[in-house]
Amino acid sequence: MRIPFAAALVVSALVAGPAAAEDARPSQLACDAGKIGARDLAECLRASAVHADAELAAAVEAATKSIDSRQGLLSSQKSRWRRSLTEAQAQWVSWRDQECQDVAPFEAGMTAKGGDPRLSCIIDYDAARVASLKARYP
């Protein structure tokens, strides 16, 4: 599966770069491992991942409504655009799930110090996808 160039840029911005190292990721902002214990951190990450998925679903729904409200397009064009967005979103979620399930734990060094790296990954990637959708579908 090919990852669109724009998605690759968003991903690279999340995980690399000097400014990114200084800024806290969305998962760190939601659940600060330095301020809460391991049990509370695990619950915070679970709840934040559920919230991030809900925000993502809302952003996709808003994008779909934005397509529907576009002037100057035939209904068949809008329908194709919505279908394409839905398919792209399904592929993105599949990629995110594999990335977070199979890659993130190794990148984190398999330690529980910062909480479950899979959940942190979902929170961080969902936040980036929501920002991307909101920028593209105002």
Rank of each mutant, 00 (worst) to 15 (best):
A7E: 07
A7H: 03
P4Y: 06
V103Q: 12
D116F: 01
D97L: 04
D124Q: 04
A42K: 14
K134Y: 05
S79P: 00
L74W: 00
V11I: 12
T64G: 09
A8V: 12
Y125I: 11
K113P: 00
A88W: 09
Y125F: 12
W92G: 00
R2P: 12
E107K: 12
E43I: 09
G109N: 04
A13N: 07
V93D: 03
P18F: 04
D53M: 07
I3S: 11
D53W: 02
V93R: 11
R118L: 05
D116N: 13
R46E: 12
F5E: 10
G72Y: 02
K65Q: 15
P18S: 07
G17D: 01
I123M: 03
A128W: 02
Y137K: 02
P4F: 08
L45H: 03
T86A: 15
V60A: 09
G115Q: 09
R46F: 05
A88D: 14
S76P: 00
W95K: 03
R39L: 12
R82A: 02
R118S: 10
D32L: 01
A21G: 01
V15A: 05
S132Q: 14
A49N: 03
S76A: 13
D68W: 00
A8G: 13
A54E: 10
Q77Y: 00
Q77D: 08
E61V: 06
T111I: 06
A47I: 04
D53S: 13
Y125S: 09
E22P: 00
I3W: 08
S94K: 15
S84D: 14
S94R: 15
E22H: 08
G17E: 01
S69A: 15
V10L: 14
C100V: 03
E107Y: 10
T86C: 01
A38T: 11
A19S: 09
R136Y: 03
P105Q: 09
A47P: 01
L85D: 02
W81Q: 11
K134Q: 15
A62W: 00
S66V: 01
A38L: 14
Q101T: 15
T64V: 13
R46I: 09
A131Q: 13
G17P: 03
A127E: 02
A6R: 07
W92Y: 13
A112Q: 08
M1G: 11
R136L: 10
G114T: 10
L45N: 02
A19Y: 05
D97Y: 04
P105I: 06
A33V: 03
W92V: 03
D124I: 05
D116R: 01
P138G: 14
A57T: 12
L45V: 04
L45Q: 08
A33I: 01
L41P: 04
D40E: 12
R39I: 08
I122C: 00
Q101L: 11
G17S: 03
E87S: 11
E43G: 00
L74Q: 12
R82H: 03
P26A: 09
D23K: 13
S76W: 01
I67M: 06
I67T: 09
A108V: 07
A38G: 06
D23E: 11
L14H: 04
P4H: 06
S79H: 04
A54Q: 12
S12M: 15
E43F: 07
V10I: 11
R136D: 07
Y137I: 02
P105L: 05
A112D: 10
E107V: 15
A63Q: 01
A112F: 06
Q71C: 09
R2Q: 09
